[in-house]
Each structure stands twice: as C-alpha cells, then as structure tokens.
Write a protein that binds this DNA or RNA. Structure first.
Ligand code: MN
Ligand code: MN
Ligand code: ZN
Ligand code: ZN
Lengths: 131, 131
DNA sequence: TGCTACATGAGAACCGTTCTCACCCGCTGC
DNA sequence: GCAGCGGGTGAGAACGGTTCTCATGTAGCA
C-alpha cells in the first residue's frame, strides 16, 4: 500500500508543470528552487514509481533518464526536441502494426518496441537558423 | 590519420564473430578469455570509433551501451532478443516515411528517429515456454 | 492518541564510462 | 633498415548518474 506524502505530491506536480522531458536532477533542482526541501533520492524513487504506474514516460538520453508526465492508459510515443526537451505525444498506429508483424515474421514472441522521433522544435529551429 | 593496431583489429574481429548485441565489458572479457591482452579503455575507444564510422550499431539497455557489427552504408533497424541479445537487421521503410511526416506536421526540423523492436527469439521463446 | 510499518534524506556505495599520463609502437622519411 | 615523431595503449583514478544504507520521520489505522 502506497502512502501519500507531500514529497510524492510535489514531484508529481512539478512533473506536470514541466513542458517536456526532464531529468531527476533537474526536477530536484527546480523543486529546491521553489523552497521545497525534497531529497534527491526521493525524487528518483517518486519518478520511478510514477513510471511503473504509467503516470510518467521515460527515455534515456546521453546517459541520463528523462521523465515526462503522461496521459495515462494510452499507448503512445513522442516527438521530442533535441535541444530543449519539449515533447509532443503522437500516436503511431501504423508502426504498432508493423512492429508486431516484423516480430512475428521472425518468430519472435512477446514483442515490444521503442519508437521515438527527435528533431528541433519550431522555436529551436528558428533560433538555430537565425544564428 | 587512424593507425592500424592489433588491438583495434581484435575488437573488430570479436565483434564480427558475435551473434547479437554485446557490451564493451563483455567483449573485453571474451577477448581476455582468448588470451588477448587488450585494455578495457581500448575496447571502449575501438567500439566508439567503429560506431562513428558506421561499422557498428549501438543501443542502450539497462544503463549500458551494447554494440553489434553492422552492414555499413545502409540505414536499418533491429529486432532484438530481450533475453540473449541476438539481433536481426530489419528495414523499416514505412516507418521512415511516417517519422518524417510526423516531424514535419509539428514543425520539427532535422528529424531523427529511434526504432527498435524487442522480443524473445525463437530459441528463447521455446526455452521460456518449456519451463 | 499511539503504534507500526513504510517513507524519507544525507551521504556512501555502485557501476559503466571517460580521463590521465607515462610508456609503446605504427608510420614516414631517410 | 633505422631513427624520430605523433598518435595509440593501458592501469588506475576520476567522473556522474543512480541506487543503497540506515537512522529518523510520519501516514494510516485502530
Ligand atoms: Mn508503439
Ligand atoms: Mn529508421
Ligand atoms: Zn526545442
Ligand atoms: Zn534469445
């Protein structure tokens, strides 16, 4: 049975208020910045829990795990800005079917897939081209 | 100008002789096992070089980078066994087009994508079901 | 209001990877 | 061949993100 602590609540809130994918450390720093005295280990634990409960999505970039609030219960993927982390949820129905088929064709069972699209968001594209 | 050393050659060979994705540490251990006295740092460096030269593919799983010999010059993806690391190269032309389109629709530029399909290979499926 | 088991947090430990730097050796020009 | 240069190597230290430890705190329940 999972307890309700203000720490867990603070992490959930901070994640929800964040545009794109953030690291545990960044989230911890931002919480500390607002006066919240959460421990780093607690932020890691809360994010891991949120991810297993399906309330957060995660991906690994350059050796660190990034998290993002997730609309729960729906399988989806992300279009992510390489520069600022902003993310858009996208559905990938044709890819789902393709992945299942490819696995089956080669006799692989219990298929899974990792599908992420990266790029520069409109804002970062503008900034990059005007430089 | 890149020099030819027996160490680099040994790493390339060992990678080529491996079925699926392997970690730098595992490859280093296997080289040591065959009497080759390569340093761990050198294995890391060689694998990184092979990856940037397009002679190896890499992916990150559970916090460690895995490498695999790659048929060079062709953009492709992988169907990977979660259990033993065995991998099959697959082409994903419909996914390529989909990814480009999704990025364009949201105004994202310089699109990239990560597409991996995981599952249990026929052999590992058999082992799992007979247990 | 007390009890108890789970959550928290500071710091240590962990672990894959990268860095350092003294030594080695592949390459080039002679 | 042979010397000399400059990049390569390797043992161990350092690094950085994450997890663990354990003493203390506190949510949830009666
Ligand atoms: Mn999917
Ligand atoms: Mn592709
Ligand atoms: Zn951006
Ligand atoms: Zn397998």
């Amino acid at each position: 049975m999972k307890r309700n602590t203000w720490q867990r609540e603070a992490v959930r809130d901070a994640l929800g208020r964040t545009e794109g994918f953030v690291s545990a450390q960044a989230l911890h720093a931002s919480l500390r910045g607002t006066g919240s005295e959460v421990g780093l280990a607690t932020v890691y634990r809360a994010l891991a829990d949120l991810a297993t409960e399906g309330e957060a999505d995660s991906l690994v970039q350059e050796g660190e795990s990034l998290y993002r609030a997730c609309t729960p219960g729906s399988h989806h993927h992300h279009l992510i800005c390489r520069n600022c982390g902003t993310a858009v949820e996208i559905s990938a129905d044709p890819v789902e079917a393709w992945a299942r088929q490819v696995a089956a064709e080669h006799g692989f069972t219990e298929p899974n897939h990792v599908v992420d699209v990266f790029g520069l968001c409109p804002e970062c594209s503008r900034a990059a081209s005007s430089r």
